[in-house]
């Protein structure tokens, strides 16, 4: 089944909230999923893997213990790609980010990539992120520029990343996609997380939609 980017964004936002993260971070997750899907990545599957593995981990344990340094490491777990992405994005706009930056054990690292677009915009030139062990590299900018190599090596397991500015590089413009290919299982998995945000049928009936006057006349 195919779906729209809007459906993906809405579902991911609700699922992220259902997994216990704040609404503001859920909004970022939705936008990130949309960004990845529009570049042809299986965003739904990535988000599901992220939510499943991160579910029991508190926010404080999944963000950098000390974001002021040039090596980010989670206090007691892996780095969450979305929560860490928010930290990166906020610090970048505040001019409080030192590059190059090393990130230890980033879960589902592709989900971290959308946050680099804002960093590139702030810096005014492309940024490159790589995992030398796997040979995976991404160069991107804020004008839809994109060059990725061996990204399939960046799966769902926590991976180290290094990030640096690449002034002068000119990645080619990425092809844009407007559809999402859904696997039934990943859709069902995200639906289950999202479902936690819905009020059960047993409550909320007293007023609900407001019956009011007759509606068949």
């Amino acid at each position: 089944m195919t779906g729209s980017l809007n459906e993906l964004e809405t579902l991911v936002k609700r699922a992220t909230r259902g997994a216990g993260l704040s609404w503001g971070i859920a909004e970022e997750a939705g936008k990130s999923a949309r960004w990845l899907a529009s570049r042809g990545f299986p965003a739904g599957a990535l988000v599901l893997a992220w939510l499943q593995q991160g579910e029991q981990v508190a926010y404080r344990e999944r963000v950098p213990a000390d974001p002021r340094g040039t090596e980010w490491k989670a206090g007691a777990s892996f780095l969450c790609p979305v929560c860490t992405g928010c930290v990166l994005s906020d610090r970048a706009t505040a001019g409080r980010l030192s590059l190059p930056l090393r990130l230890r054990e980033v879960l589902c690292p592709l989900l971290f990539l959308p946050f680099l677009e804002g960093l590139s915009r702030k810096l005014g030139h492309p940024v490159q992120v790589e995992n030398p062990l796997a040979g995976a590299t991404v160069l991107l900018d804020a004008e839809d520029g994109w060059r990725g190599e061996r990204l399939e090596a960046l799966g769902a397991v926590p991976t180290d990343l290094s990030l640096r500015a690449q002034p002068g590089a000119r990645p080619p413009r990425v092809e844009r996609f407007y559809r999402v290919d859904w696997e039934a299982e990943e859709k069902a998995g995200l639906d289950a997380f999202a479902h936690r945000t819905f009020a059960p049928a047993s409550i909320g009936h007293q007023s609900g939609a407001g019956a009011g006057l007759r509606d068949n006349d």
């Binding site: 819905f198 009020a199 059960p200 049928a201 409550i203 909320g204 007293q206």
Partner: peptide
């Protein structure tokens, strides 16, 4: 809130309905 029945936005009584 969003009702699970129709996935539509609803408005209810916070306390009385446990929303």
């Amino acid at each position: 809130y969003i009702s699970e029945e129709k996935l539509e936005p609803r408005l209810g009584d916070r306390e009385a309905e446990g929303l």
